[in-house]
Design a protein around this nucleic acid. Structure first.
Lengths: 393, 393
DNA sequence: AAAACTTTTTATTTTTTTTAAAAAGTTCAA
DNA sequence: TTGAACTTTTTAAAAAAAATAAAAAGTTTT
C-alpha cells in the first residue's frame, strides 16, 4: 500500500496530528526531507492537513494526520480463557464494539481453529471490503518468537509456523507478540509520558507479566525471553508453579493465586460478600473489592505486597523512571498502589524509590488491544508490495 | 588536540589495526567518508598505515592504527583500600609499571589530597612532558554522577565538584566513573566477544558490583543508579549492610563477607592453612584457596552459591547473552564457576540458562585500569580546544 | 502600532551516501 | 600452472539528505 515514508506514517499514527517539525524530531530527519515525504503522502490520499495549531510565539504550524479510512487493523488480544477482538482505523479509533470469545488456550487442540473462526467472523460482520485490512495483530501469553512467528507455549501448529498458518487461513498478513510486551508497547506509545523512556510495565493478569522499556526501546533480551518477572524465585512456599519450579512470584501474586486464595479462604469460613458466587472468578473478586469487601481487599493487598517485593529487586537492578501497573488487573489500580509502595519502601535503598514513580495505567482494559495495533504499526515496513499476501485456501 | 574524526580514533583505539571497511562498519558511515577522515588523521600525524592484512578471497585491505606516542592517558583505579595508577599510550599499552598506593576511602578526610599527590608523583616520575597527557580517568566505588563529576559516597569535595577540583590541582582534564561500570566498559571493549552486546558484568570485589551492557551500550538507569546487585534484598540473615538495610546480597557474598566468615571460622577452630596469617586479608584467602586449602575453598564456594542465586534473578529479568565474572576476585575465577552455575541451574527456568554463557574475564586484575582508559576514550569528544584545560594553582 | 522576537516554511548550498566502475587478489578447474 | 570466475577493497561520479540561510507569518513588548 505505501512503501516509503513508513516512519512518517508511524509518527502520525502515534500522535494524531503532527506538524512538520514534530515529524522531523520524531523521525530524526531534516525538515525539508519530511516536507517532501508528507507532500507525497498527501498526493497518495493517505495523509491530510487538519488545520493550524496554536503557537507560543511564532508562526502557527500546519498539522497533518492520517486519513482514518485508509486502512484497518484487526487486533486480537488473547489470555488463558478469553479472546477479545476489535477493528481499529488509522486514527487509532475502535470501529464497532470489542467482541469477546471464550477460548481456552491450555489443553485445547482446537484453539487455532477457533481463533481463525473468530477472526473470520469479525471480518465478515464488519462489512468492510477485505482489501481495506492491513494486517492482524495477535497478542497472547507464552514464549513468543516474533521473528519466526511462533508461540513456543501455546497454539502450536504442525508443519508451518503459527503466523504462516493463520495468514493462509485468514488471507491477511499476521504479526504476533507476547501479551506483556504488547502492553508495554501500548503504554509507551499511548500511555503516560513517564512510560516513554525507561519504564517497567507490569501486566497484572493470570500471571504477573513484565515488559521493559529501556532507552526508549522495548527490551526482549538476547533470545527474547527477558522480563520473566512472574517466575522470579522469591518464595519458599513449596507451591508448584506452571513452569515446573517452586516458589515463583506468580504462585503468590497473580490473579490465579488470588482466585485460589479466595476460594480457600471462603472454605475456611471467611466472612465476605464473595460467598454469593457459585464459581468464583477473579473478575468477581475485583468487583467486590471495588465495592469495599474487606476480605477481597485483604487478599489483593497481600498479593500486591509480594509484587512490591519483586519490584524492589527490579528497582535495584534497573533504576527505571517509572513503574506502570497495567493489564487486566489494573482496573483496580488504586487497591494495588499502597501495599506495593509499602513493600518497595521497605526493601529498597531510599535513593532508588525517590527517583522512580509508581503509577496506574490510563489505558484500562484496552492496553493489550492497543498493543496488538502497535505490533502491526511497528511491522508496517514488512507490508511492502513485494512481501505479497497469500490468498486464503 | 583533534576535534573531528573522534569516532574514527575510538574505533582505532579499540581495534589496534583496522581497515577502512572495518571503520566504516564501526562508525556507521560510508567508506568514502571514512577514507577522507583517515587521510586527514594521517596528515595530522595521529594515524599511520600499518600494512596489508590477509583476505579471504579478494583484494587485501590496508590497515591503519593510532601512533602510540601521540598522547598518554592516566588511569586511576581505586577501591576501598588500594589505589592503582598506570600510564597508557594510544596503542593501549601500559607505559611503565602499575603503581600501587594504600589509600583508605572511608572515613578519610585526607583522601582527596593523597589521591592528587599520588597522581602528581606518577606524572613527574614518568618523565613525559605534561602536554602529552590527554586526561586522567579515575574509577572508584560509590554512587557516581559522571555528568556533574561527583562521587556522592566518597571523596566529597567542598565548594566545587570532585572533577573540577582534581582538574585544577593536577592541571589535566579529569573523568570519573563507577568501578563496576568501568569494568563493564573494559570487558565490552577489550574482553571476550560474548561480552559485547548483552552482557552482565559482575565485579567481584569488596562488594559484588554489576555493570550492564544492553543492546551494545552501558545501561546506567534513569538516574544513574542501575546495577545495584550488591544490595539486592535476598537474605533474611539480619546482618546489617553498609547501605543501612539488612540481608543484602553483599552481606553474604562479597570479599568483605568472605573475610569476616574466615576470621569467624578460624576462631571457632577450623583447620586451615589460613591460621598462619596474623591479620587475615581477602588476598590471603584467595592465595590459599588457589593452593587448595579446603576451608578457604569452602567459604568461597558458599559465597559463590549466593551470587548464583542473585544471578538467577538477573537471568529471569534480562536474558543476557553472557555473564562475565570480572574484577579483583576473578583471578580465582574457576573456583567460582561451578557453585555459581549450580545455583543458577537450581533457580532458573531451564530455557534461560541454556542461552546464557557464564565465563571468567580474560582481563585479570587489569579490568578496572582498562576501564579508566575507556572512560577517557569515550569522553574524548569533550577534549576539544574550546573546552580549555585549567592550569594548576 | 511598530519594533523585537519566535517559530515555521521555503530556497540554496554543502555534506554525505549511494551507486557504479576500477583495481587487486583469491580460488578453482582444465 | 594458467586463466576464468569470483571476492573484496579502493576510487570516481551521481544522487540523496542535511545544514544553512533567507523569507514568511505570527506573538509579545514597549
Amino acid at each position: 500500500m505505501f512503501l516509503k515514508n513508513i516512519d512518517l506514517i508511524k509518527g502520525l499514527y502515534y500522535s494524531k496530528a503532527a506538524s512538520l517539525n514534530d515529524l522531523s524530531i520524531y523521525t530524526g530527519r531534516s525538515v525539508p526531507y519530511v516536507t517532501k515525504g508528507i507532500a507525497d503522502l498527501i498526493k497518495s490520499d493517505i495523509v491530510k492537513e487538519v488545520g493550524i495549531r496554536a503557537s507560543s510565539g511564532g508562526r502557527k504550524p500546519a498539522t497533518y494526520s492520517l486519513i482514518a479510512e485508509t486502512g484497518f487493523i484487526i487486533s486480537v488480544a488473547m489470555n488463558q480463557f478469553l479472546t477479545r477482538i476489535v477493528i481499529v482505523n488509522m486514527s487509532n479509533e475502535f470501529v464497532g464494539e470489542v467482541q469477546e470469545f471464550e477460548l481456552k488456550l491450555n489443553d485445547n487442540k482446537d484453539a487455532i481453529h477457533s481463533l481463525i473462526a473468530c477472526i473470520q467472523a469479525v471480518v465478515v460482520n464488519s462489512g468492510l471490503p477485505k482489501d481495506k485490512f492491513l494486517a492482524i495483530g495477535i497478542t497472547m501469553p507464552g514464549f513468543i518468537d516474533a521473528f519466526l512467528g511462533n508461540n513456543l507455549s501455546f497454539l502450536k501448529s504442525p508443519e508451518e509456523t503459527l503466523v504462516t498458518y493463520i495468514n493462509k487461513q485468514a488471507g491477511l498478513p499476521v504479526f504476533i507478540e507476547n501479551d506483556s510486551t504488547a502492553i508495554a508497547l501500548a503504554e509507551q506509545k499511548f500511555g503516560l509520558p513517564i512510560a516513554r523512556n525507561n519504564s517497567m510495565i507490569i501486566n497484572l493478569g493470570w500471571g504477573v507479566g513484565l515488559g521493559m522499556i529501556i532507552n526508549k526501546e522495548i527490551f526482549k533480551g538476547h533470545s527474547g525471553f527477558a522480563g520473566e518477572f512472574s517466575h522470579l524465585p522469591l518464595h519458599k512456599n513449596g507451591k508448584l508453579c506452571s513452569c515446573g519450579k517452586q516458589g515463583c512470584l506468580e504462585t503468590e501474586a497473580s490473579l490465579l493465586a488470588i482466585e485460589a486464595k479466595a476460594i480457600e479462604g471462603l472454605r475456611q469460613g471467611e466472612v465476605s460478600s464473595l460467598v454469593k458466587y457459585d464459581t468464583l472468578s477473579a473478575d468477581d473478586i475485583i468487583t467486590e473489592a471495588l465495592k469495599g469487601d474487606a476480605f477481597a481487599i485483604k487478599i489483593i493487598s497481600e498479593a500486591a505486597y509480594f509484587i512490591g517485593q519483586g519490584l524492589a529487586i527490579l528497582l535495584h537492578l534497573m533504576n527505571p523512571e517509572s513503574i506502570i501497573l497495567s493489564g487486566k488487573g489494573s482496573v483496580i489500580g488504586k487497591l494495588w498502589l499502597s501495599p506495593i509502595q509499602q513493600a518497595m519502601n521497605e526493601h529498597c535503598i531510599p535513593h532508588l524509590t525517590t527517583y522512580t514513580q509508581l503509577a496506574v495505567s490510563n489505558l484500562g482494559n484496552n492496553a493489550q488491544l492497543l498493543g496488538g495495533v502497535t505490533t502491526v504499526i511497528e511491522n508496517l515496513y514488512k507490508l511492502s508490495p513485494q512481501a505479497s499476501i497469500s490468498e486464503p485456501a
